[in-house]
């Protein structure tokens, strides 16, 4: 049974619907894999944001008696992190297209606002 293909397995000639081209490269696919590289750049950026959020969270965990300002600031850092992830996720979904549209300025500004908010909250934690 191991060698013979199962009945419900799609044959080689008929590609499955959800994977339009399993063997052949997609006709519209960029040979330089630009959308994939951009998607990975987004992934790296979300990882950087996560590292900052974890450092902020460490502040509360390590502190013996964190004050209300620190707790609220770290909670806001978590919200900012979620917003960052959501914006990045929407853009990464757009990267599934072989010809993704230009990044919207709203997304870019949202991410910059998130970064500035993290800096401001870092200053609030400091005080």
């Amino acid at each position: 049974m191991a060698g013979s293909p199962r009945r419900d397995e799609p044959s080689r000639d008929q590609p499955r619907r959800d994977q339009p081209c399993p063997d052949q490269p997609c006709p519209g696919r960029d040979p330089g894999l630009q959308p994939e590289r951009t998607r990975l750049a987004w992934r790296r950026t979300t990882l950087s944001c996560t590292a900052v959020a974890i450092l902020a969270g460490r502040q509360v965990v390590q502190h013996h008696a964190p004050g209300p300002v620190v707790v609220v600031a770290v909670a806001l850092v978590l919200l900012v992190w979620i917003a960052f992830m959501a914006a990045a996720h929407v853009r990464m979904r757009a990267m599934c297209d072989s010809r993704p549209p230009v990044l919207s300025a709203r997304t870019a500004l949202a991410l910059v606002a998130c970064t500035c908010a993290l800096a401001a909250l870092g200053a609030a934690i400091l005080v």
Binding site: R37, T38, A41, W42, R44, T45, S48, C49, A51, V52, L55, A56, Q59, L103, A108, L111, V112, T115, L118, A119, G122, I125
Partner: peptide, 18 residues
């Protein structure tokens, strides 16, 4: 991607501050 690289630089500096 260049924009994202600069954003990461900014995030790294913020993380450095923390």
């Amino acid at each position: 991607r260049t924009f994202l690289a600069w954003l990461r630089t900014g995030l790294a500096l913020v993380g450095g501050g923390f």
